[in-house]
């Protein structure tokens, strides 16, 4: 474990807290993409199957938190706050994201075992899971400030894994090329959002797309 990964996981927890806080205080899930949230549950369920045969206090606790919280978010979006969910602006074709991740998982897993193929699927799916959310923000042309903080924290989580991978490569010649490639792609997908977030939201202005 290193400070970068710890900070990354902390940002991940913060993003989930911001999301749930926003939904429960505003009693609304407006501006949040259900498709992205559903993809995240799929990412966690397919990646954390090793909960059943490995145990590490930190990792197992975090895995349970991520699976539980994303299931809870989906419950909120399909239950109490369903009236505030507008599926007409959540139109990204997730079948291509799932299909692409599945193909890559079948072609290039570390090992052709069910657990490893699912893990690889999850890594690739996570790299694109934010696209429906970013696409929705693009379509509406703006986003609530709290939503931009959520997206920023979510992007910062995996961005911080990059120095973690560099650190681990330099200190222990460990490296996980699949996670690194997918993690870099994931972070690049946030880059225009990060730019607008930095130039707009952090200057105290509303998040509006040019």
């Amino acid at each position: 474990m290193n400070i970068f990964r710890l900070a990354g996981d902390l940002f991940h927890l913060i993003s989930i807290f911001i999301l749930i806080h926003k939904m429960t205080t505003s009693k609304s899930c407006s501006g949040i993409s259900f498709k992205s949230q559903a993809l995240y549950l799929l990412v966690y369920v397919t990646r954390y199957l090793d909960l059943f045969w490995t145990f590490a206090l930190y990792n197992s606790t975090m895995k349970i938190i991520f699976i539980g919280s994303s299931a809870y978010v989906l419950h909120l979006m399909t239950g109490p706050f369903k009236p505030t969910h507008d599926p007409n602006i959540d139109t990204f074709k997730v079948r291509y994201l799932i299909g692409g991740a599945a193909i890559l998982a079948l072609l290039f897993p570390y090992k052709w075992t069910p657990a490893e193929v699912l893990w690889t699927f999850s890594i690739w799916l996570e790299s694109v899971a934010i696209l429906p959310q970013l696409f929705m923000v693009q379509r509406t042309g703006a986003a609530e400030t709290i939503t931009t903080h959520y997206i920023f924290a979510l992007g910062a989580y995996r961005a911080l894994y990059i120095p973690n991978w560099i650190y681990r490569y330099l200190t222990s010649t460990f490296w996980d090329p699949l996670s690194i490639i997918a993690g870099v792609i994931q972070t690049v997908l946030y880059s225009d959002f990060f730019y607008i977030y930095y130039t707009k939201v952090l200057q105290g202005r509303k998040f509006e797309l040019p």
Binding site: M62, K63, L178
Partner: peptide
Amino acid sequence: KKDGEGHDEL
């Protein structure tokens, strides 16, 4: 540790 022998990152 070789890849694929269990993943220790989230």
